[in-house]
Design a protein around this nucleic acid. Sequence first.
DNA 1: TAGGCGTTCCTAACACAGTTAGGAGAATGC
DNA 2: GCATTCTCCTAACTGTGTTAGGAACGCCTA
Lengths: 185, 185
Amino acid sequence: MRREIVDAAWDIAREVGLTQITLRDVAARVGMQAPSLYTHFDSKMAIYDAMFGDAWTDYESTLPPLVDGLSADPRTAVHQLSRHFYDYAIADQPRYQLMNERLIPGFEPSPEAFAPSERVVAHARATVASLADVADDEFLIWFAVIGGLINQHFANDPGGTRVTAVVRRAVDMWADSVGLPLSSD
Amino acid sequence: MRREIVDAAWDIAREVGLTQITLRDVAARVGMQAPSLYTHFDSKMAIYDAMFGDAWTDYESTLPPLVDGLSADPRTAVHQLSRHFYDYAIADQPRYQLMNERLIPGFEPSPEAFAPSERVVAHARATVASLADVADDEFLIWFAVIGGLINQHFANDPGGTRVTAVVRRAVDMWADSVGLPLSSD
DNA sequence: TAGGCGTTCCTAACACAGTTAGGAGAATGC
DNA sequence: GCATTCTCCTAACTGTGTTAGGAACGCCTA
């Protein structure tokens, strides 16, 4: 039942936006009245929280195949990692907004929901570290660049390819700056 | 009177956050009842709109002195421009959220309020172009990098200097990638 | 098998938000 | 001097998250 409710909330988020979710709408979609949702969730924020955990858990599940297919060439591998996250982000705007932006006033993920998010970041950090000798500051810049591109995409050309077209260029820029050797592929 | 209302709204935004502004609170602060605000603004969004125009107009007013003090050395000038925007952004989170993020559900700036914002971007574009032969894609990446750093600042270390400390490094990275000669200063 | 008990759902209603309706009183202009 | 307009008010409506309290159903145990 919790699963059904959260799925209904995702559907609504994709149709009308994350902030436009209404408990009455969610309830209607699962054939209930709004107050009945409180049998399954403590509050609306708890539903957002479940969605947040959902999304990060789902992203986490995409990592093993990604890592399996990672190139032996460090720069190519960084491109794969970057592009993987970027593609996942722009594929679903409400999902990205919930995962990485503070769009919902007052929403703060619970420790349990936050756990997969932290694991993913730690994993990314470790993976990048395995490819090159990257300091924390450089890792932070990498994050900022990818995040900045995603924001530009949603702000200026959602649905288009204008920003996507420069991702490679931007990641190369970063790879150059941390001294990653040019692709041998 | 419009001025007073908008100022009260800014005060509240800085105290409790942009999304926590309440018409009843704004009204109370200027000695009115909530419905009376409708004499001066068509809706709550119209107040946000005035604030948006306000913020961009204010930023625009900081540009002439900045341009006056711009270094003759292109790379140093890019650092100045970048740092100027970055500093302005992190100095006031609600202001930045209103100017550059879609934090308010359903808020879309009116053409009039949007005008100064567009002028600023065009001005930045022209200024950067005067410093180096920068393609549109490269300009977009520059924007993404600065915006990404600002987001990282607010997300990970608001009030701290962890992100600020890497701004120079990140901008140098970009300057390298567009072939800006090293500082002669 | 009957009686309690927890689970799940309901209706009614509250608090608080933006907003609208409609009127009172002062200021302004012919 | 009177009409008009501007500014503010109170009352109230709508939509939202949420709480209170009760009805029905299934399940376990005496």
